[in-house]
Amino acid sequence: MSKLRAVRNLRICSKDCLCLYVCPTGATDTETGQIDFAKCIGCGACSKACPSGAISMVPYQYPKQQIKDELVITDLNKLIKNKVLEEQIAETIYKNSNDEIEKQLFKSIARANRLMAEDLYREAGYMLPQSKNTKEFLERLLEENKNIELKTDIEKLLNLLECNE
């Protein structure tokens, strides 16, 4: 595995601040609580010293994602098609309703369907943002899109996410 960087899980961090004492580059003293990735050299000293186990070392480059069978992808895509429609129907009911009890239920149902669709995509060939599938998806979006602002955003993503395949 190539170079690593330290990340802090803010939910676990108990502010014992040992990372401050051991960091050789002062990457951990930020006001936001997250580590300054530009300064972090990936030495891992903070992660070893942290008494609450809130700092982990993550790689810049990930291994290739698992290859998926086309038949599996076809069936998962069929489920995705329905889940996004179910989300849309629930959301329409939510929007058209004036009843707070009804709105709450259908908002929850819409959210549940979106979460299921997202999860299905992860198993249908889009686990990693750095995968070839993601890259090709973004390139297609770029090609089809006419909105200048969105085109700029898609180009940014293509530049930021280095493809690992």
Binding site: V7, Q34, F37, V58, I80, K81, K83, V84, L85, E87, Q88, R114, A117, E118, D119, Y121, R122, Y126, M127, L128, P129, T134, F137, L141, L160, L161
Partner: peptide, 19 residues
């Protein structure tokens, strides 16, 4: 809708990697 769900799924993937 599918494009939207794929993009929000990838957003979560980036969040997990602190990107």
């Amino acid at each position: 809708l599918e494009i939207s769900a794929l993009c929000s799924s990838l957003a979560r993937g980036c969040e997990k990697q602190y990107l």
